[in-house]
């Protein structure tokens, strides 16, 4: 658990940041210049706050009497620009922390294999592609045996193809090494794929912090991620395959049918975008849509309607005219017709 609560005044920006990052991946999300990088720099010890307290798993990194230097914090940092040592080969970059982090050095072969760095070991950073450079930087940070991995927009400098190349490695870090991560991003797809917890930042302050699913299903917050991205994230479990190839899954909101192929694990997350959901007061009939869930309206914010199905929350995008026509109001029971669903790994 990372606890962050500090203040730092810059000319033109008063940074006042407080949040807690539980285990898993915590995304710091916000527009450029809102203080995301300064925040992770303060956590890593590269920026000294004016006041506050920063602690990792109960170990104080910074407070009124303590200010651990970066080398004593055990926080691996993957920079946007990789920052590999240009005079060293990939292998020497990876082994750089081995002198003092012997334990992690034993993982060398495993991490080289996991990040597919074997063919690169003898090369120098200048000869690597952007994606290879970031993979090396991730490997080097992991080999410093960090208690927390900080990533500052590690994909921002890469084109889409390279991003797609790196993303699975980041998911493996999250799922296989189970390393707590603080991930700075202003990319919604990255946050959706990686984060469990989201810290929304705006002009030097934390405007909201909480589980990703809660923010996606909050009609007031979801638009912050972009109008087309508003929508719910709900848990699902595979129950079986229908004779016609459709996958039957169970969710807290009820059973649903998904088109194949079968996802990798039995557990998954379903992403239901608000504009893919239609509301009906009555049980709809004669529809091509397969998934109709009984729900209850819990909140209405503009055209976004929050719906509760058991303990899951989802959003529907409707017009204000429809809100009036259907007499939608909190507490009302109705039916959500889900036009399409995308599947995310659990």
């Amino acid at each position: 658990m990372l606890q962050v609560d500090f203040r730092r005044d810059f000319p033109g920006l008063a940074l006042e940041v407080a949040f807690q990052a539980p285990v898993g991946v915590t995304a710091l999300f916000g527009p450029s210049g809102c203080g995301k990088t300064s925040t992770v720099n303060a956590v890593a010890g590269l920026l000294r706050p004016d006041a506050g307290r920063i602690a990792l798993d109960g170990r104080v990194l910074y407070d009124a009497t303590t200010d651990l230097p970066p080398q004593a914090r055990r926080i691996g940092y993957v920079f946007q620009d990789a920052r590999l040592f240009p005079h060293l080969t990939v292998a020497a970059n990876l082994r750089y922390p081995a002198r003092w982090r012997r334990g992690a050095a034993r993982d060398f072969d495993r991490i080289v294999e996991m990040l597919a760095l074997g063919p690169l070991l003898k090369r120098r950073p200048a000869t690597l592609s952007g994606g290879e450079r970031q993979r090396t930087a991730i490997g080097r940070a992991l080999l410093s045996d960090p208690a927390l991995l900080v990533m500052d927009e590690p994909l921002a400098a890469l084109d889409d193809a390279r991003k797609a190349e790196i993303m699975p490695w980041l998911e493996r870090l999250r799922d296989e090494i189970r390393l707590p991560m603080l991930y700075v991003s202003h990319s919604v797809p990255e946050v959706l794929r990686l984060a469990n917890t989201v810290v929304l930042m705006d002009r030097g302050r934390v405007s909201h912090a909480g589980p990703l699913a809660g923010i996606l299903a909050d009609p007031a917050l979801a638009p912050r991620l972009g109008a087309r991205e508003a929508g719910a994230l709900i848990r699902a479990r595979v129950e079986g395959v229908e004779p016609d190839g459709m996958i039957r899954v169970a969710t807290a909101a009820g059973p649903m049918l998904l088109p194949g192929p079968l996802p990798q694990g039995p557990e998954m997350r379903l992403r239901i975008l608000a504009h893919e959901v239609i509301l009906s007061r009555h049980v709809p009939q004669g529809l091509s849509a397969l998934n109709v869930l009984p729900v209850r309206v819990t909140r209405i914010d503009g055209g976004l309607v929050q719906l509760a199905a058991s303990d899951e929350r989802m959003l529907a995008q409707v017009t204000e005219r429809s809100v009036k026509a259907l007499e939608l109001q909190p507490g009302l029971a109705c039916h959500a017709i889900v036009k399409s669903v995308s599947v995310l790994p659990s």
């Binding site: 010890g45 080398q71 040592f85 750089y96």
Partner: peptide, 14 residues
């Protein structure tokens, strides 16, 4: 100096 910062985050003394 960013390279020196990177070395520090990897645990290297100054």
């Amino acid at each position: 100096p960013k390279l020196e910062q990177a070395a520090a985050t990897l645990g290297a003394s100054r």
